[in-house]
């Protein structure tokens, strides 16, 4: 499998990984463009890097931990100002899982859970 070449099927797979919805025309277009870019960078494979360590960033700092102290954070109202849809102090989104009549689990949350979630 040549990493410097993509097929339209692979492009479809990448689009799914990237959560992009491509039309068949866009899939063809991206295949063409990605192949052109990959062809241009193909020369990299001839460089021997077996003994080389990767460098992920250049600030030469190690993980820096902050002190375990309480600090005020932004109030929820400020954060939720940008929410496309909200309910109370929650971001509201369409269902993630299918609801079946049998598996309706609205009772699965106790009243206490709902309150603590701000419902």
């Amino acid at each position: 499998m040549d990493p410097y070449q993509v097929t339209p099927e692979l492009v479809k797979h990448i689009a799914a990984l990237a959560s992009l919805d491509l039309t068949p025309k866009e899939e063809m277009q991206f295949s063409k463009e990605l192949n052109r870019i990959l062809d241009h960078i193909k020369h990299l494979q001839s460089i021997n890097t077996e003994e080389v360590e990767p460098v992920f960033h250049t600030s030469w700092t190690l993980n820096r931990l902050r002190k375990d102290e309480e600090n005020p954070s932004l109030p929820p109202s400020m954060i939720l100002r940008n929410a496309p849809e909200r309910e109370g102090n929650l971001f509201k989104i369409p269902p993630v899982l299918e609801m079946t009549s049998k598996g309706d689990d609205s009772e699965a949350f106790s009243e206490e859970d709902k309150t603590s979630n701000g419902l």
């Binding site: 990237a18 959560s19 992009l20 919805d21 491509l22 954060i79 940008n82 929410a83 496309p84 849809e85 971001f91 989104i93 369409p94 269902p95 993630v96």
Partner: peptide
């Protein structure tokens, strides 16, 4: 992804919403 801020294109399922919003 259209959840917390920025554009959201509404769809019936979240997965579809992510994709359509991003595209």
């Amino acid at each position: 992804d259209g959840v917390r801020y920025g554009l959201r294109i509404s769809k019936e399922k979240s997965g579809e919403m992510f994709k359509t919003t991003r595209s």
